[in-house]
Design a protein around this nucleic acid. Structure first.
Lengths: 233, 233
DNA sequence: AAGTGGTCTAGACCACAAC
DNA sequence: TTGTGGTCTAGACCACTTG
């Protein structure tokens, strides 16, 4: 583990534990240098990560302040699995595996190529508080992961990629659109009335640039909420 | 202007100009050091910004590669004004000022306080290709900007804040929800049928931690699309 | 072996804010 | 004046990839 990562993790834990409540100051660069016996750029890197993640805010001449934050909703702008999300939010969550089968990646993802992309399709229905609110369809490319026979219910796809297969996920490109619930949506989510669906389609890239999977995540529009921090460039 | 900012801007311009097409390599750290006569950490900082923005990707031992990207849609995860967006996309855009008046910030933003927040309400209708697709309601706090008499059509709110008033915008917190078009939406956007509306509410913060404005941006659901890059933490 | 990115150091000077 | 964050330097060692 890197030094800056250790410092970052420790500070973040202390923020979450309430040791640094909102609007209080984090230790200064020099305080962190002494505490961890590192160079200033190293301590700054740790704090820069917290700034990037929206936890704190630095003001020149004054200090580093913990930002008042309510991170409770569905995050779009970082790559996070549903299981990680539910764990972080302490939601009553349940996932039902609907199907695993071989299928080419649908054209709706409009990847550049003309060739069909062989993949394993995994369809899952996500429940929050016993209500079906999300339908996830993952297309895991056969090129990268030749075979997925079954999926432990206690394991997320990301955990499978990272812990069992040693792949390193780097980033994702996501598109968000609004569509109307189709017959299958209505059936799987037990909808009786017309309903808007928030559709998040993403391509997930490994650190070597390969795409490992395409995912379509369909959310009940009336249950969807996203909270974002965005920085001004 | 900082050195790393200059290097970043120059590289970004060259990427956009096609000098570095997708999947080609950017100059290495050492090449940039020589070209700009800077220390390595300075050149790395410039490239780190490009990584952060999703333009390039670094692979250890191999190099820095330009990422295939289609940045054409509405960005959620950085703070960008409509005018900046339209300019970047070369859209045929037009903005119609609907009203400027004094009004407290509506409770729908659920800012913490119990006190009413006096503000200037600015209502604008955004046209893309001569079709009304976005209704923006900005509430600019009187505490920070006491009076806004009129708004030049050639000036965005952000430009007003930054260039005329010397304020520095730092970040925003945004929430995204789906709602059904209300009577006013239907009237302002000339909608005849029921329609889902993507509602993006944001608080914009200055670099000294003050909130300068609340904004509600209502988008026609069938015209809305967002493209995001997200990193794995 | 040579080139690349990743991390880290021990300084330095600056601008800004608070006292 | 002192403390803060912002920028920058000129090195260093490492891990990884490619020839």
């Amino acid at each position: 583990m890197n030094k800056y990562q250790i410092i970052h993790d420790e500070l973040l834990k202390q923020i979450n534990d309430g040791k640094y409540p909102e609007d209080t100051k984090l230790p200064s660069d020099f305080a962190l240098m002494n505490r961890y016996h590192v160079a200033r750029e190293t301590s700054r890197k740790a704090v820069a990560m917290l700034v990037d993640e929206g936890y704190v805010m630095r003001i020149k001449g004054r200090g580093t302040f913990v930002i008042n934050q309510n991170r409770y909703s569905f995050p779009i702008s970082h790559v996070e699995s549903y299981r990680e999300l539910a764990a972080r939010l302490n939601f009553n969550e349940r996932t039902q595996l609907d199907a695993i089968s071989d299928k080419d990646v649908p054209l709706v993802f409009d990847y550049g190529g003309q060739m069909p992309l062989p993949a394993t399709e995994i369809v899952r229905i996500r429940y929050l508080d016993n209500e079906p609110v999300i339908i996830d369809r993952d297309y895991v490319l056969k090129d990268v992961v030749p075979e997925i026979k079954s999926l432990s219910t206690s394991l997320s796809l990301f955990e499978l990629f990272e812990q069992k297969l040693g792949l390193v996920i780097s980033y994702a490109k996501k598109t968000i659109t609004i569509e109307t619930a189709n017959t299958l949506d209505r059936q799987l989510m037990s909808l009786t009335e017309p309903m808007s669906i928030v559709v998040i389609r993403s391509e997930t890239f490994l650190n070597d640039g390969r795409i490992v999977s395409f995912t379509e995540s369909r959310h009940r529009g009336d249950r969807f909420k996203s909270v974002e921090f965005s920085r001004r460039h």
